[in-house]
Amino acid sequence: METAALSVRRLTKSFGRKQALHHVSFDCQPGHIVGLIGANGAGKTTIMKAILSLIKAKGDITINGQVSTFRHHAALADVGALIEYPGIYPYLSGRNQMKLFATPTADKNQRIQTIIQELHMAPYIDRRVKGYSLGMRQKMGIALALVNNPSLVILDEPMNGLDPQATKELRELIQKKQASGTTFLISSHILSELQKLAEDLIVIDHGRVVQQTTMRELLARNQHFLSLTTDQDLRAAGILAENGYLVTAHAPVRVQLRSTDTVAAVLKILTTYGVSIEDVQHEDGDFEQSVLDLIRE
């Protein structure tokens, strides 16, 4: 097996008497986008801070096969991060802010220029950060996380304060970086946002990993319904129920599609019985609901 880009084992953290993390373990495979989901106060930020050696925690952190601890974290050379809200020196311009943290290699200015273009920051990058808006600051934080082309990027609620356009651009940038092999660990409240990005999901509740799954699996768990309008709804419902379908409503007829049920089969049965179908609608259950169900389980 490939070495995981990030491996977290039995991470445990207490703030005074309050235990914030209980034996949290998970892996991020190289080149994957991993989503960290959990309610407010579930422990997402705390997990990320522990990975980044910002806080002391019990347990083992391995980054690209290299052990990383609170005191010794040379492995972070290959990690970029944005935790909570971006840290910014108000007296520097955006460009200088990046010059400050960009590793001094020959292509330093080139890297900075690229990220400025990718995040469309050119119009204000040479202004002092003091005057930036919330979204501009957020982009600044993301730019800082990406400027050294790290192999692992940790983003805590990266879409905070971004408008829909910027959100879309960031999503595309993340996907582009992923295509070139970068691993992402992203926490977000905006589940639909993670739905579009993450392949792997780690669901956190009260400081515990309650589920480690893939987005595909989660979407599969999601319930699908077929809503039918016919010339004789009641009869149609009866016919479907007799044939073993899960009918959940009568007018219009609503059928829950299990993994073996197909739309074609439903329609075929009804036409065989001479029911004429006026309208068919496919309804997806709520993605957020399935995540909430996971947490409740």
């Binding site: 980044l52 050696s53 972070l76 990690v79 935790i83 840290g87 910014i88 020196y89 108000p90």
Partner: peptide, 9 residues
């Protein structure tokens, strides 16, 4: 400025 975490990480 909340920049200590940039420096530390």
């Amino acid at each position: 400025y909340n920049t200590m975490k940039n420096v530390i990480t």
